[in-house]
Design a binder for these strands. Structure first.
Lengths: 225, 225, 225, 225
DNA sequence: AATGAATGAGACTTCATTCAT
DNA sequence: TATGAATGAAGTCTCATTCAT
């Protein structure tokens, strides 16, 4: 019994993950409300019973999906930081690009984060609001540090953080609506410039361009390993 | 025979509007999907039959609501422009504030625009996308003009327009989630500064502050008439 | 007041008849259950209120329509009889053709009689059954008389009457389903032969053909006056 | 896991059939349009969900019911034929009686076939018309063969087939309306005589009576096995 | 662990009829 | 008489969840 329990656990985990991944795909295409549990289990080739063995409810599954993704985004942004050796400008640019890159890698998931999550139901709003607040908070801390070390002009860090997040999400959102999307790098530079200038950070265009190329290359490399 | 068709028409219009307004309120509280037609008609104290006499379907009503609002925002922004006499900076600041002000006036409606509209169903996405595209287009034209007349730096107007819209919506969104919201003017200045700087427009802080005060006063005045 | 009452009455009757006629047309196209009162009043360009001023209910209107038609058919058949001067064969042939002719003249109405009337609701069945029984009874009396005056073989008049009616209705029914119907005379002869033979009545083909031509001519003539 | 898929399948089939049979009964009493899905599931003691698990819609169920019956009637008629050894008269008589017998066995279902099916809705008319056309076609082929082998007089086989079908359905129809119906044999002879004579087929009364008795006995026997 | 048949609350919508004008 | 806005009961169907196997 004990010898097989590890295998069993692995199989369980795999099935759970399969349902989670499939759900993400289906939600992205049909939207949360237009997706029936049956749609998910059919696509994943598992039974309704299994679905409810692994997840308490449809909403529960969605919440888990949402929080998972939120975490991944946070992690991804941090992965490109090198606080010790890089300048704030470089780190900021790298974070912006890392986030754009991650969304580009996961169109399906992005749609869920941005479009669906907003309208599940009043209860879910709280979860979403908390997650967003946390994310903005991280940004606000950054902006504080900018103020300490740079010649910047940010009347209100919290507002700035929100605006930054919004600018990011809307850009992505538009990109998701477009069927044949433009490559990320085209958006990237304009996006970085807009936000760097918004904070009144002085930068050299060539440096920023270089930072962008570098971080994208790194991310691709890490991804293909 | 009905006394005068004018009376009747007026009563019809009033009832239709009542349903529309009530629906906006209920949607804002419960969300589109959690709101049953029954909830709306109960809140408006009309019968289900009346609902379907005035609107083809629940989704249809929502679409009308959405497009109405979109139009109002467009109109409101234009109302504060004075292209002949005002500088671009002044006009831009006024437009930004007019939009913020309108959302502040209509919390319910705003919630619908931003949160619900994103996830009605795949068909509705098209309507929403078209509306958003139009809105961004207006902004992009503005940014073109900035480039002609000012010392600015906008690598890509379309991206800039999207980012601007996003910055706006996210700020509002956060404000909607907060139960005891901060007065608009506090957000306003930080918001204007962020976006003016983002375009690398040189401005004097005091002038911008003055523009903001002026336009808010005007809007209030026009509103109370 | 009194002077106009006759005019008023005429106008009332005309409107009532208009609704009745229009209803017949709409029922024929959409069927009783798929036809809404609104469909009828729209087609007749009258108001819902008027409809309920003249008729107690939708079912009531249908019943009246049905009984009207049933009566017209009875009357029409009788109109071609000449009991004194014509032989039974001639009279029978003339009746068969008169009925076929009347249906051909009123496709709409026929559809109602045959297809819709059968499935209004359990209550209406009684009305319909009574009407049909009466019609079959008339036929049964005829067949009695055949037995007295001719060399015929009819084991059971009631069954024969039913069968005759059925043969008639089914032929019409098929003709109604066909989009480009064959002219009546083509059906007529085969129909008459079938039923005359069924009763084992000896007849001369040429005479029957002549009877058919004569009666159709008469009916057409009477119709165009 | 379900013990055996065979058991499960059997239970599924049984439940499906239960719903089908119950629906037939309820439709026969209340008529298609007056019967709510709730009426059927209550009568069958199953849930609404089950109804829609087994059938796509109320109309769908009805169509299946209708086509099933149509098929059974076709099959039943063929079962009494013995083309090799029996004369055409004998075979024709046997078919007529087999059909009458089957309706007598299934009053409920018959009512559906004859009365309800005519007025479901315009779309269903096509299904019904096709089914009836097929049935009449079978008969027309028979009549062709009569012409080849017998001294008959059928001016138009297609019309004759329609008339025959009509005579049959109307007889049954009347019998369905009557609360205390006459035994079948009483109808049977008169019916056979009418149609044999209608085709001008010479026959001996005693033989036909014998054929009738024989086939009814056979059918009863086969039925009780 | 797994299956999928079964459940039933609840959603949307229609439409015959009423009634204020 | 005439109008058509208003009503709400009733109908069909969906789907998240449960549970016997």
């Amino acid at each position: 019994m004990y010898r097989t329990s590890k295998d069993t656990q692995e199989r369980k985990d795999a099935k759970r993950q399969l349902i989670l991944d499939t759900a993400a795909k289906v939600f992205a295409v049909k939207g949360y409300h237009s997706t029936a549990v049956k749609d998910i289990v059919d696509a994943a080739a598992v039974s309704v019973g299994s679905f409810y063995f692994y997840f308490k409810s449809k909403e529960n599954l969605f919440t888990e999906l949402y929080l998972n993704i939120a975490k991944r985004f946070q992690t991804n942004a941090i992965s490109v930081l090198d606080v010790e050796n890089f300048s704030l400008i470089k780190n900021f640019t790298r974070v912006m690009m890392a986030n754009l890159w991650l969304y580009e890698q996961n169109r399906d998931i992005s749609k869920i984060m941005l479009l669906e999550a907003a309208a599940i139901n009043p209860e879910f709003q709280k979860i979403r609001a908390a997650s967003m607040k946390e994310s903005a908070q991280t940004m606000a801390v950054w902006f504080e540090r900018f103020k300490l070390h740079h010649q910047v002009n940010i009347p209100d860090e919290r507002v700035a953080a929100l605006i930054y997040e919004g600018s990011f999400y809307y850009l992505i959102n538009d990109w998701l609506e477009t069927d044949a999307p433009v490559p990320l790098t085209d958006y990237g530079y304009a996006f970085c410039v807009y936000n760097l200038q918004a904070l009144k950070i002085a930068f050299e265009e060539e440096s920023v361009k270089q930072y962008i190329d570098d971080v994208l290359e790194e991310l691709e490399e890490a991804h293909h390993k």
